[in-house]
């Protein structure tokens, strides 16, 4: 019963930001995931501005310098690569490209996929059928294979990578949106809006979209991790981002020839990928509960079961 009292007190005093923060704090894993992602985003935004010069400065005396040795300065705490460039600075700088590609691809595919899904779900025209067939066509080929073909044939530039990844992810949003729209469309409040003479645009954007938005956010978070892994694989194979630009996947590939004597070259960027993916998965799990009004109480009550 004390839980209810605490809940009531909290609701009285706090605004929405504090309430969300409390819900995040209730799930410790999600809290640290969010914290880690915040750090990664800050690295992506400001890392290259601050550390670009350091990250590209060669220092042949410090070739493959081992990690955990701070005699060269704190930047060398994770060691140095084959040209003596500090790995910590490089991992921070590489965050920008990694995040940029994934964010752009997720944004593009989610906007296009959702828009198409809304049309396919809401309109009864034959266009809807064509959209679904288009989705099937994309779905019937594995994304990595498609990406490999296209990127070998076109130039592997940032724009092309984003394009390929975005196209292969469209069906995810398309199918989810359509399925949700088909269900929401029949609900009472949509019927009411129709009866009151709301236009199609108003119904879709003011009545249907807000209801399915939480689902889409959860999927996009999960998809971000998938796209990041896909980009890393492509960069690792040498058909993604090209040097001298760097991403985490490319750094793993660059460290591969030195595996036998300097494992840290490939280890740290790989660890960065794992931690980011893991954080995104955890945050997506939390979002699924936090954005669902019927499940939210689990977090507002203190969420001991999720600890």
């Amino acid at each position: 019963m004390t839980d209810t009292q605490i809940l009531a007190e909290r609701k009285k005093s706090n605004g929405p930001i504090a309430r969300w923060f409390a819900m995040l704090w209730a799930d410790k894993f999600a809290f640290f995931a969010a914290l880690f992602l915040l750090i990664v985003v800050l690295c992506a935004l400001f890392g290259p501005l601050l550390l670009d010069a350091v990250a590209t400065k060669q220092n042949l005396r410090g070739r493959n310098a081992p990690p955990f040795d701070i005699t060269r300065g704190w930047l060398y705490i994770l060691g140095a690569d084959a040209l003596g460039r500090p790995l910590l600075a490089r991992v921070v700088v590489a965050a920008q490209n990694t995040m940029l590609v994934a964010a752009a691809a997720v944004l593009a595919s989610s906007i296009v996929g959702t828009a198409l899904g809304l049309i396919a779900g809401y309109s009864r025209a034959s266009a809807a059928q064509w959209i679904m067939r288009l989705g099937d066509v994309i779905m019937s080929f594995p994304s990595l294979l498609l990406a490999v073909i296209v990127l070998y044939m076109l130039e592997p530039s940032v724009a092309n990578i984003v394009l390929v990844l975005a196209i292969t992810r469209i069906p995810i949003y398309l199918r989810t949106t359509r399925a949700e729209v088909l269900e929401v469309r029949e609900r009472m409040f949509v019927q009411a809006a129709k009866v009151m003479g709301a236009s199609h645009w108003r119904i879709v954007f003011c009545h249907i979209l807000p209801v399915i938005f939480p689902t889409l956010v959860t999927i996009a978070t999960l998809d971000f991790a998938f796209v990041m892994l896909a980009e890393s694989s492509l960069s690792f194979l040498g058909i993604g981002i090209q040097a001298p630009e760097i991403t985490w996947g490319l750094m793993v590939a660059q460290g591969r020839p030195y595996l036998t004597n300097a494992w840290w070259l490939s280890f740290w960027p790989g660890l960065a990928i794992i931690l980011t993916t893991l954080s995104l998965n955890l945050l997506s799990n939390w979002l699924r509960i936090a954005l669902d009004p019927t499940q939210r109480w689990r977090l507002e009550m203190g969420g001991r079961k999720h600890g």
Binding site: A225, L229, S232, S233, F236, G249, V252, A253, G255, R256, L259, S266, G270, I273, I274, L275, T277, L278, N281
Partner: peptide, 9 residues
Amino acid sequence: AAPDFWVAI
């Protein structure tokens, strides 16, 4: 969460 190329290495 583990990227397969990294696990392989």
